[in-house]
Every structure is written in C-alpha cells, then in structure tokens.
Design a protein around this nucleic acid. Structure first.
Lengths: 134, 134
DNA sequence: CTAAGTGCAAAATGTTTGCATACTT
DNA sequence: AAGTATGCAAACATTTTGCACTTAG
C-alpha cells in the first residue's frame, strides 16, 4: 500500500503546477526548499520514481547528457507525442494524426513497436530556431 | 589542429568494428583494456566527445537513466532515423520516406525543426516484442 | 619547438541505499 | 500495532578537470 504523505503531495503538486515545464530532481528539491518546505533530497528522488511508475510523471533525458528530467503527465500523455527543444528544454505535447500514422507505419514496415510515452522528438522550437538564425 | 594518436585510433576503430552496437564509455574503456591496450579512462571520454563532435559517433541515452551511450556513425546517419529497442538496446538505422515526411510535417504544422541526428525513436524491436508476448 | 593529447588522481554531478526515526493506516 | 515513508549521511556511478608529462606535427 502507498501512504499519502505531506512530501508525496508536495512533489506531485509541484509538477502539476508547472505542467509545461520539466525539472531535474534537484530543481524540484531546491524549488521546494526555497518555498520553505521541509523535504529531503532522497524523498524527492523516491517520490519522482513513484510518480513515473504510476504514470503521473514522465521521465526523459533532455538531449546532451544532463540529468534526467521529470514532468507532470496526465493519462492523456500515453497517446500523444512529445517534442523537446534541445536549446531551451521546452517540452511540447502534441496530438497529431500524422504522428499516429507514424506509429502504424513503423510497426508495419520496420517491425518495430514504437513506445510513444518514451519517445521524445528532439529539435529546435520556433523561438530558438529564430534566435539561432539571427 | 587535431592530432592523430594511438588512443584516438583505438577508440574510433573499436566503435567502427561494432557498428550495430552501442557502448557506454566504460564499456569502451574496459574492452580496450581487456584487449591489452594501454589507455586512460579520461582519454576514452575525451575521444568519444571528439567523435561525437565530428559526427563519427552518435551519442544517446538509452531509455531508463543508464549511462550515456556511443555508437559508430557514418556520415549517412545525418539523414536517416534511429530506432532503439528499450529492451535489448539494439539500434536500428532506417532510411525511410515516411520519416522524411515526418520532418516536413513537424516543421510545417508544429513550428518545430526536428533534429534527426539527435532524435531516437524508442520502442521494442521485433525479437523483444515476440519475447515479451510469450 | 609548439600545440595537442595523455593519464592520473581529485572533484564534481547525479542518484541510490542503509538505517534509525516518524508518520499513515 | 504493522507497514510504509522520511531524512540523513555514506556509497555509488558517471563524467569532468587540473596538471605535469608525452607525443604529433
């Protein structure tokens, strides 16, 4: 059984409050500490793991070898796609026919079962693309 | 200028010898040491970075928080796609019209510039899918 | 001869674990 | 009361860095 503790709620609420951003474990930890909350680093790690397990958070690795990242994830995230900007780290949730057909195509033609919850399409968001071209 | 050293060749040749597999830095290091080669751990890291820089190796993060991985990559890899099996770690290089159209679609409809060399599509390969279903 | 690369050991990161204590149910 | 969670500090794993030394050009 899983107990409902102050700390577990803290971590969950924190991600939920910022659904469009992702955070590494330490960012969550320090954010909470700076808000004056009392919570330990390992508790944050353990709670994040738990949230990933029960699919309330998404874990991924943003591009170039940084820490691993966590982001709020509702059950809808199972069936849509994620674009992550390798420059600013923004994560974009996308529901899209074309991407659905991608899954089907890959399984039909490449004998490969795409895991959409795990796959993150990497590139540059509009803002960063603009910035880079200047 | 870049010098051509025994160690730089060792690392490059090692990846090249095993183009269809990927290795974390330590695997490369220990494989070389076990073959009796004299090379330092930090040199392996530095050479791997260099290979990634000049696109002779591909770096990615295989699924669930393991170390980051390196794999031989020829210049062709710039324009094709990579499927990685989250179960066995196999990396599949794919040249595919559909995936080319994906890039275009994402840039047209989602204002996002896909970086195909960085994006790894995550899922299950045919063998592992079979195994899991038994 | 100069610039670049090497290897070691130490430091920096990021994450996990053991264990006594505290909290939930 | 029993089971789970917490928090600390220590352990771990991976990667980076400083620096004296070696090697390639």
């Amino acid at each position: 059984m899983r107990y409902d503790t102050r700390q577990s709620r803290l971590v969950y609420e924190f991600l939920k409050k910022n659904p469009s951003r992702h955070f590494c474990a330490d960012e969550v930890y320090f954010a909470l500490v700076n808000e004056g909350e009392k919570i330990g680093r390992s508790t944050v790690y353990r709670q994040l793991d738990r949230l990933v397990e029960c699919e309330k958070a998404k874990r991924f690795f943003s591009g170039d070898g940084e820490a691993c990242c966590y982001q709020f994830s509702s059950s809808e995230c199972k069936n849509h796609y994620h674009l992550v900007c390798s420059n600013c780290g923004k994560l974009i949730h996308t529901e899209c026919d074309f991407l659905d057909r991608l899954s089907k195509h890959i399984s039909d033609s490449h004998e490969f079962t795409l895991d959409t919850s795990r796959t993150v399409l990497c590139g540059l968001c509009a803002d960063c693309a603009k910035e880079k071209n200047i």
